[in-house]
Design a protein around this nucleic acid. Structure first.
Lengths: 227, 227
DNA sequence: CCAAAAGTGTTGAAACTACACCCATGG
DNA sequence: CCATGGGTGTAGTTTCAACACTTTTGG
């Protein structure tokens, strides 16, 4: 392809902050780098954007190549463009954040090592990936309080207690059980299933699923899901 | 500079959506393109990112070169990466949005023609700049309701009625005067000045200024300015 | 004295917070 | 029968929305 503007160009990458939830703590998926620079360090999954693919496509492709993940919630986060963020040369990175349901990372991980880390106990990261991760965390916290995206981190069928634990893990503070349940149900976006969730020597819990159709309808009318 | 990765690269630009307020309508600053493609069409101020400057620096530089604006409120918006958004070749653009106070665009505009347009009456724009502008508008509306950034669009000294007109123009709906004033003053971020604003055959209005120091203190404690 | 915008309080409704006990199950 | 988490209601407080008249000025 001919370059119309013959100036030196920055390289363009995408990096993905992948969040998961194990029922107790919020987690981030990292991969161990096999190549220099930062060989053997942990880093966000990501890589170079090809000239003939969109940024979203690049993020999805890299995510699948490096972690096996497909069809996940993915959203552009911020573009990081410090001059020295890559020691080799100028690299601008468009960061994404992804939310995945438990058990999604079963697929082969392309020989690369991929591993979940609790966000409260992260290893040291390559490049400026801590900054990216911190930005993603802030965004997730903000978003969770006004958009119903928590469901992307839970199995398709979940109990209200699981939902509450997720909110508590992300927001970092305990929530009142009765108030939380009232609020969560008040939007009429949770459908009670016939099934129950049995999980030990105690009363089984009602299972729910999220109603994405009703949510889309509400969203169009300018709607806020606040909890 | 040596390229470590010898693949074809996208070119990288910044584009700025500059908002202003004339007291009645929300406005956007556009420049008329002097070069192909889209010669003579209106477009967002912007241009190519140099390898040795950050994205923020590039946005500020282009803004000054093309509109004479300096020291304005500037924030990264979103990165646009459709493959065909520039007819010549692959160009990825990091969009910014800027808020400027009335009278700021007095400086020489680098021979290029720069002009304010009411956002409700825009000309047809080059590239995908309508999409960028629409995204910026949505962001501005959202942000205005939970962060005190309206002051960036008003003169340093302003009346509560001016502030209300601004909110009404951006949100596109009339607001109740008494409720608005109560809310606006409740955060204790507006400092009443000794001066009044005289503007016709009627009672003069109290002038206020925004208190950025107090705001920074509040922001650290996780604070929401909602109106 | 008239026109025009500035300024000001109250009330009923709705939402929010805090809080404690009974229920269903498995072992 | 006991241990464990599931499930529910209310009262006091705060916030929100709706609404109309008086004040100050210039002409």
């Amino acid at each position: 392809m001919p370059h119309t503007y013959e100036y030196p160009r920055a390289a363009l990458t995408v990096d993905c902050v992948v969040f998961g939830f194990d029922g107790g703590e919020l987690q981030a998926l990292l991969i161990r780098r096999g190549l220099a620079p930062f060989k053997d360090k942990w880093a966000l999954p990501g890589g170079f954007v090809r000239v003939e693919e969109t940024l979203d496509d690049a993020a999805r492709r890299e995510l699948e190549e490096e972690t096996g993940l497909r069809e996940v919630f993915l959203e552009q986060l911020y573009t990081f463009g410090s001059v020295k963020r890559d020691p080799r040369e100028r690299v601008v990175s468009v960061a994404y954040f992804a939310l995945v349901k438990p058990g999604a990372v079963t697929a082969a991980t392309d020989a690369a090592e991929a591993k979940w880390f609790s966000v409260s106990d992260l290893p040291s990261l390559a490049f400026d990936h801590v900054d990216i991760l911190t930005t993603a965390l802030t965004r997730l916290r903000g978003k969770l309080t006004y958009q119903p995206i928590g469901f992307e981190l839970l199995p398709p069928k979940f109990t209200l207690t699981q939902l509450q634990r997720l909110y508590e893990a992300v927001l970092g503070e305990p929530l009142d059980k009765r108030n939380f349940r009232k609020k969560a149900l008040s939007y009429d976006l949770l459908i009670a299933l016939k099934e129950k969730h049995q999980d030990g020597p105690h009363r089984p819990a009602q299972l729910f699923r999220f109603d994405p159709v009703k949510y889309e309808r509400l969203k169009k009318k300018g709607f806020l899901f606040e909890i």
